[in-house]
Write a protein that binds this DNA or RNA. Structure first.
Lengths: 195, 195
DNA sequence: CGGATCGTTGATCAACTTCAACGGTCGTGG
DNA sequence: CCACGACCGTTGAAGTTGATCAACGATCCG
């Protein structure tokens, strides 16, 4: 399981054996059942978590009780309430498992330690965040410029590898659409493809 | 001008004098007139730019010719088409000056060099991107969960210090609203405050 | 078997956009 | 110094997209 993490890191930066040995004990492995919370809103997000296996979602709940999904994270992704993790203030997001999931977690303190002691990890996270910023920019742009249909099609394309693992109403929640809207878009496409 | 940059960096990480001297020649100073492009879509974004003075915007133009503003950057902010900068592919965004502006620019090559030679800068950018991710998350959440009015009020609050420097129709473009909508929201608020 | 979960369909409704026209202000060139 | 155009905000009326509400059908699983 730790190997999944190291493989992922080494796609971006080189790690020496001693560095790997330094990193290993900083991470804690954990298994989550389907529907189990990793974090609940108003707790403090104490750990950054890496997904070795399975699928998680982060979401917040608005005043009217509607859930809005912020992120899906599967094998090879990181997830957290980043704001809460950095500031140690109350989390706004909930995070829970959509499948049986295995994660590796690092605490705020150890994260700081890690980035200070292993500059390669500073670099790794810098590159990770860099890429993440690019995709967030795209998503943001998409959310204001695209129609419901365009958003859905783009999502389907981008998330093709795990599309089958995400129920439609959660895709709707992620895209900020009503589940009915997704349903109608798909019907329209079906008949179009058929005609 | 270089001092503005160094001050900004030293709010996040410590730099030694030799490091500062190493950094200085990597940046190129440039002045921009109002309306002058820093980058146009379909060019390659060759530099990361730091704003020492003035105000820039990045935006893209959709199929119908509508502009969608992605970011405002004023004193102390960085701006670029990050995707293009990282991949050296064609830029999707335009960047231009909304005021007389002074910037410091670093090339893709020197950026790589900088982060490799000065680990503190790897760390600086890591922290910068970290924070940026948090605000992007908030904005994304806001764009799907909030009404037009909530979005505008949130913007007005967050951008209070430079609100006077941004014309209303550009705020509309940033928020993904019609200019008329902003106008109506403000009117509603005025009469409300008066009553 | 029975409840939970998920998707579908139709009807109505609300928020925001679009279109069109107008008024004010600012800066610049004649 | 004034006149004109560019730029910006405002207002009203009509139009559209997607949300909401309500009901139903299918599948999965304990």
């Amino acid at each position: 399981m730790f190997e999944v993490l190291v493989d992922h890191i080494e796609k971006k930066v080189h790690l020496t054996e001693p560095e790997k040995e330094l990193i290993r004990p900083l991470f804690m492995a954990r298994k989550l059942r389907k529907k189990q919370y990793l974090l609940q809103a108003s707790e403090v997000c104490t750990h950054l978590t890496f997904v070795a296996k399975g699928l998680l979602r982060s979401y917040n709940v608005d005043d009217k009780g509607n859930e809005h999904i912020n992120q899906f994270a599967w094998e090879g992704w990181w997830i957290s309430d980043f704001y809460s993790f950095l500031t140690q203030e109350e989390a706004l997001f909930n995070i829970d498992a959509m499948e049986e999931t295995e994660v590796l977690m690092i605490s705020r303190h150890d994260y700081e330690e890690l980035t200070l002691k292993v500059p390669a990890m500073d670099r790794y996270f810098r590159i990770l965040y860099q890429n993440s910023l690019v995709t967030k920019d795209r998503r943001l742009m998409s959310s204001t410029t695209h129609t419901a249909e365009e958003k859905y099609l783009q999502f389907a394309k981008r998330y093709a590898p795990i599309l089958g693992r995400i129920p439609q109403h959660l895709i709707a929640s992620y895209l900020g659409l009503a589940p009915e809207t997704i349903s109608r878009i798909r019907r329209k496409r079906m008949t179009k493809d058929a005609g």
